[in-house]
Design a protein around this nucleic acid. Structure first.
Lengths: 132, 132
DNA sequence: GCAATACTTAAGTGAATGCTTCAACATTCA
DNA sequence: TGAATGTTGAAGCATTCACTTAAGTATTGC
């Protein structure tokens, strides 16, 4: 899926995305926006702080790419950009995957070196050591 | 000053996880740890800062649950806890999912109200809107 | 015992963050 | 037109953050 055609050199998107999502207020804003686009003042309503504060949070969300907005008349409408969320999701997912992959290697290693604990795997072909 | 003490006070695990991952140094630490458990000083080696700084980052990671550690003798060994990462992954995933679900509803709505062209008279909506 | 190792803790600093208030500005509508 | 609406911007302030330095406390090995 192709998104922003700008193909610009983004500084550190992952950094900004996670930093944007680290704040509970901004996360609630994302939750609101995940239900659909709203204007700035709409977005601000459920929050117990000034419009100014919300606008500043919005700026963080926009600079991270998580939210985009466009102004028509005097109303700015904000919407989620799921692609930016994808960046974060993938990073987290990959760390978990790597960790689990390592776990598998460890299992194999233990099955090889301590076959007493392993019920079934004595016949597996010997392999190189998993880097610890 | 009290932070918004409104109804939805999150217990805060997600908060801490995302905040932990928001920092590039801590994220690199997680990357290192995703390759397997290491001691504190091992962990600190690739970084261009004091051990103290690393230990402080480690404390953040531990308080978020992303990393756990145990001390044997004088060596503290740190390892990733993938379950904590899961919390973050799921939250992001669900926001994306909700957004895409909404997109589907919008598609359906447009297909109903503007089958050919929405040039004129899109303002009369006899059907219920997809919940905005 | 003594010194090296591995971590721990405390205190300090400059920059960033999360707010606030107050003052514009642009658009819409009576 | 002029008031209401919706947003924008700047300045200020308290708190948190990412470090630093400098001093500890346990373990381990000789």
């Amino acid at each position: 899926m192709l998104q922003h055609s700008t193909a610009t050199i983004e500084p550190a998107p992952l950094d900004r995305v996670l930093q944007a999502l680290a704040d509970p207020t901004r996360r609630r804003m994302v939750e609101v926006l995940s239900e659909g686009p709203v204007s700035v003042s709409e977005l601000a309503k459920p929050f117990d702080m000034t419009l100014s504060a919300i606008v500043q949070h919005l700026a963080v969300l926009e600079s991270s790419g998580v939210v985009r907005s466009e102004k028509v008349g005097r109303v700015r409408t904000c919407r989620l950009d799921p692609a930016a969320l994808d960046t974060a999701e993938q990073w987290v997912h990959q760390r978990r995957a790597e960790w689990e992959r390592r776990f598998d290697r460890l299992d194999q290693f233990l099955a090889r070196t301590a076959p007493a604990a392993a019920e079934q795997d004595a016949s597996k072909s010997p392999k190189k050591e998993p880097s610890p």
